[in-house]
Every structure is written in structure tokens, then in C-alpha cells.
Design a protein around this nucleic acid. Structure first.
Lengths: 349, 349
DNA sequence: TTGTAAGCGTTATCAG
DNA sequence: CTGATAACGCTTACAA
């Protein structure tokens, strides 16, 4: 069924014998005569009227949509953000338009520029890299944008960041506190925002702690399991003594490292302690459970949503961009011996 | 920064000294004099013109948006679908509007009804329950809808389903093949589409295999870890002998069961073999790695997207609703002692 | 209180 | 080839 094309206020007006203005008034709760209201509501109900969101948007210049752009929504970190953002937006009456841009920075630029088409009232973006082009677009865009991640220049957009340097420090301190001195590092791409920050923090942190970092115990790859596994194999096969602890730039890398360590018969944390970053759901599920530095993904998502909604509400447009920082937190689990459960003879297999 | 309100074709027309019609023509690649084209493009470029998507939509009655509605996007199953759907839509020029409805069936109805507002050209929905109201709305909705999950009545909408009964059978056959006879079952809510199907399949499958199902070895809860853990503890504390195998209605339940079994000193798979369903990323990460029945989430997502895009393209509206079924697949891992199968390497990005 | 009419930014028709 | 002009469905002055 559903044969008739949807009724518009014009249809309703005719059916109710009033003008379209009256229909609009009734539908928007403006003062009308009771009789008019009755007839309009009646007709609307009878014909199954539903207001057209697009027409409304054209008139009001508000789409009630907010875009959320990340590199890969399959990444648990971004997912954690999304899970906080979505309900907040919904509660505020906004739909969520999801962009998964892929590793290509050009696509992020596209999203930023696409905002000019006004299909959304605002944007929350987690750039994997921040290029000059990003900054230029940010400057040009008219709709409010919240950037999750570090921004070289304050004042360009609302900004939610995390102190990943402190996070790395916490991990290093934890490991040295356990007596580990040969700490290896497995990073994702160093030319990304998070990759760069972690790399810097590791360098600085080990220097400060007076730790020697042996050649071949720092690896760079992608933010995935394979990178973690491959790095471990290389270290084990390399000339340098195997590290007694591994700091991994995210949980996926850490999981890959755990796999590889197990396959080489190395005990975790007995021979090698492993720390991940991001404290994703995977950390609690892995075996052994993974000590991980929480960078407050969920919290950052929520903060970003709040900043954006804030700016969209009322006439807060005049206020200067705000920057919020979320403190990292170390979540200790068995992979660093934290609360290691007695191992009931689990060899691989 | 970004002071001027965005230029419209009117602005461009004035700047270029032509009519808005000519501007539109140039912008849409319709034939115009070279000189006209030059001037328009020039002005557009100079003023940084970007077409307004909303106005375009009002005129064309197409939003280039597709909605995807699930109960909880944090659920790896839905996430797997999303990860397939998103790039397909993007490639076809559609934006993705994400709805995470929560367990409330009323919210799903809302989404269905909301489509009437025409903010999207189509919808892919994974209903957690299918009520009479769902069916009524489905009948009424004008935009094309693809339902992932079983539908009582063919012909209401395009439909992508999986044969979860066969999936359960495969799991049972696998377990009995390993010599297990006391098979317990931990289900999610039985009044949901997947919960009901799995429950029925378990009953039928055990009956067919001539397996006795002891009292207290079938539990129902939610589709989460806690349910799995709690069920195991109840079974262990109950009067019936502990099952030597557990079929869990999804991977989360299975992970909870693994935790509880470990905490009670029961060996997996030595004492109890465990099978999950959905074969999510978690299955490969857990310890021991989890045997799981893949219900082809990713594949179902992709199929749904294709069906919908199909219907949106050209004038395929006349064709009758199609139903596609995805075959389940048993992925054997260590939790049933099976050949510790090599992962396909697909971890969450 | 109500109706008429003017937009919102596009596209598309129809004369010139 | 180009320029008025009428939609698309809605909100909102401005009049009556």
C-alpha cells in the first residue's frame, strides 16, 4: 500500500479547509482557535502527515545533524567515543552522520570542506594527521567544529586532547617500578598525531629515567596486531637482548605482541611485561589481561559532544574556542604482573 | 574568520553578471557558452561557493543519506555490519546516518516512522524484536527499507537473514563429535529475534541428537559477559552435574563463561568445551581462543547495503522484495580443543 | 485569529 | 545559449 505520495501542509490545509499558515501554526503550537486546531490535527492525523525535515532545514538553516569523522570506526578507540557521543546527540535532538575516512588525510579534508554543503550543523573530528591544509580548512569552515586530538594552534576550534606524554610516563614509571630496565617500544606510524606524540614521550621518558634503549628495541609500524607480532619476532631474532618489558602504542599492537611472545615460549609477565595503550575492551579480554594506559576515549568523546552542543545551543558563538584536556590513567592487569592469577599451565595450543 | 555568510548561486550570478539559471547550468555541466562558463567558475571559485545540500535535496527529493539502525553500535556484530556498509554507501555517494536505538523496541518504531520525515533515502535496520507495530510501519513506510534478521512475512521489505538454526546445529554436531553429551545452553533474551531463534534451534537440535538436557543447564539472560559468568556459577552451584560443553548464544556470553570457568578452576576445553556465536573479533583474542559460529555479520551487512543501493538506483522500485540468506560457518578454535585454527588475521583495526 | 505572500537555495521549464 | 520564473515544503512577517 502506501500509494499516495506523502501529504504536505498544502494537502492538510485543503483537507482542513484552512490556509497553510494555519496548518503550520497548529503544527508548531502557535496560538490558534480551538476549532482550527481540531480540524488541522484531524486532517493531519487522517492523512498521516509527517513534516518534511529537508524543507524545514532549508527554512531554518539547521539540519539537526552532527557529523562525526574518524579514520576507522572499527578501531575500538573511536568506537568508544562514538558510544558516548551518540546518545548525547540523540538526547539533544541531533542525528549522527558517521564518516569513516580511511587512513587518507585527503578524505578528512573532504569532510571538513563538505561541511560547507551544510548537511550538518557541526562536526566532531579526530584527525589522524593535522596538515597545513587541515588548519586552513578549519579556519575557513563556518560550522562549529570540535577536534579531538592535539592542535598546534589554539583558537582554531574547540579541542579535546589527552596528555599522552603523561600516559607514557605513567607506563614507564610502572615498569621501572617493577624493576624492568630494558624497555622496548612498538609504535604505530610516527607521522600521525598519536604516533608522533607517543614516540616523543617515549624518548623523553626513557631519557629522564636514565634508561638505555638498545638498538633494535624500538619499532614502528601500524596500529595493528601484525605490527606487534612482527616487532616481537624481530627483537627476539635480533642481536640485542630481549627487552624485559614492552610498551605498545595501542592495545592492538600489544595483543599482537602477546601472541608472538607466547608463540616463542616467552612468559608474560615473567620474561616480558607488556603494556598497551587506550585501555580498550580487548585489554580486559586478552590473556593475560593487558595492563593499559587509558587515554579516556569515552570521556573525550563525551566532552567533545558537550562542547559542540554547547556551541550550537543559544548564541554561544561569540565565546572563544576552548581546549579541554583529559588525564590518562594506568589500568594495571596481569600482563605486568599486576594481579597475576596463578597460571594453570597454559602453554600455547 | 569566515565572516561572510556562504555565497549562493544568486551571489555568484551577480558577481559573474549572469542569471542564476546560467550559474546552475555551469555548475551542473549543462551546455553554455565558454565565456559564460569561465565567468561563473571564476566567480564561484573566487567567492568559495559550495552548493547547499539541503536546497538541493528539497528540489530533488533525494538526500543522499542512508540510515542504519541497530540496538547498540557497541555490539561487535553490528559493528561488523557497519564496517561493511559504510564504505559501500560512501562509494555510492551516500552519507550514513547512524541510529543506536537501545533495547527499546519503541525506539525502532520511531526510526521507522522518522523515515517519513525524509531525512534519508533509505534504511537498513536490524530489529531486536519484530512486533506487529514494526510490520505495520514497514508496510506504511515509503522509502526502501532492508531488514537484517528474520521477518515473519516475506514481501514486506528486502530481507537479509541467516540460518541460525543451522548454525546451532553445526555447533551441536561439533560438540557431540568431540564426545560431549551434557551440553548446556546460555541464551540472551528469548523474546528477541535472535534469542528466540537460538532457543528454538537448541531445543530442536538437542532433541534430534537425542541429548538429554538436564534441569538447570539452560539459562537465559542478556547478550553480555555477565550473563555468561552468572550462568556458569549457577550451573556449578546447582544440583545437576556440570555440563561438559556450553553453547553460548553469542561471543560475549561465551567470554563471560570462560572467565567464570577459569575462576572456578575448570579447564577449557578439558572439563568444559565452550562455543560462542557470531565469531566476533573478540573470539580470536580471548584465551583460550573461542570456537564460534560465524553468522556472517560482515557479509549480511554488505548484502543489505547492496540490496538497498540496488533499489535506490534506477527504477528498480517495481521489483518484489528479495530475501537473501547467509550460511553460517563454524570457526573452530582452542576452546573446544579443535585444531587451534590459524586466524584469518582479521582483528579489529 | 487568519490568510496572503515572501522567502530559504536549487533545479527545470519555458520563452526569447 | 540565456534569462525570467515557477516549483520543492516549510516558516514567518505583514495585512486583514
Amino acid at each position: 500500500m502506501a500509494a499516495h505520495s506523502s501529504p504536505t501542509i498544502t494537502t492538510i490545509a485543503q483537507a482542513a479547509g484552512v490556509s497553510i499558515a494555519s496548518v503550520s501554526r497548529v503544527l508548531n503550537g502557535l496560538p490558534v482557535r480551538a476549532e482550527t486546531e481540531r480540524r488541522v490535527l484531524d486532517a493531519a492525523d487522517r492523512l498521516g502527515y509527517v513534516p518534511n525535515a529537508v524543507a524545514r532545514s532549508l527554512k531554518s538553516a539547521r539540519t539537526h545533524q552532527i557529523a562525526f569523522a574518524v579514520e576507522d570506526i572499527g578501531n575500538p578507540v573511536y568506537l568508544a567515543m562514538l558510544r558516548e557521543i551518540q546518545p548525547l546527540l540523540k538526547a539533544a535532538g541531533y542525528r549522527l552522520v558517521l564518516h569513516s575516512t580511511g587512513a587518507d588525510a585527503a578524505e578528512e579534508i573532504e569532510v571538513l570542506r563538505g561541511l560547507g554543503q551544510r548537511y550538518a550543523d557541526g562536526l566532531i573530528i579526530v584527525p589522524i594527521r593535522v596538515t597545513r591544509e587541515h588548519l586552513a580548512e578549519l579556519r575557513a569552515v563556518e560550522a562549529p567544529v570540535v577536534v579531538i586530538g592535539s592542535l598546534p594552534d589554539d583558537g582554531l576550534a574547540d579541542n579535546v586532547r589527552t596528555d599522552s606524554r603523561r600516559g607514557v610516563d605513567m607506563a614507564l614509571r610502572h615498569l621501572t617500578g617493577l624493576g624492568r630496565r630494558r624497555i622496548g617500544f612498538i609504535n604505530g606510524p610516527a607521522d600521525t598525531v598519536p604516533g608522533h606524540a607517543r614516540s616523543e614521550a617515549f624518548r623523553a621518558g626513557t631519557a629522564r629515567a636514565g634508561l638505555a634503549v638498545a638498538d633494535g628495541t624500538v619499532h614502528e609500524g601500524r596500529f595493528d596486531r601484525e605490527t606487534g607480532a612482527r616487532a616481537v619476532h624481530r627483537m627476539a631474532d635480533g642481536p640485542a637482548p630481549m627487552p624485559d618489558a614492552l610498551l605498545c602504542a595501542n592495545d592492538l599492537i600489544a595483543l599482537g605482541a602477546l601472541d608472538a611472545l607466547r608463540s616463542r615460549g616467552l612468559d608474560v609477565p615473567g620474561d616480558v611485561a607488556v603494556v598497551g595503550m587506550d585501555d580498550t575492551d580487548l585489554a580486559a579480554v586478552s590473556w593475560p589481561p593487558l595492563t593499559s594506559v587509558s587515554l579516556g576515549s569515552a570521556e573525550r568523546g563525551a566532552l567533545a559532544a558537550r562542547l559542540l552542543l554547547d556551541r550550537l545551543g543559544a548564541d554561544a558563538d561569540l565565546s572563544a574556542p576552548r581546549a579541554v584536556t583529559v588525564e590518562p590513567r594506568l589500568v594495571v592487569r596481569a600482563s605486568t604482573g599486576g594481579a597475576h592469577v596463578v597460571d594453570d599451565g597454559s602453554a600455547a595450543g
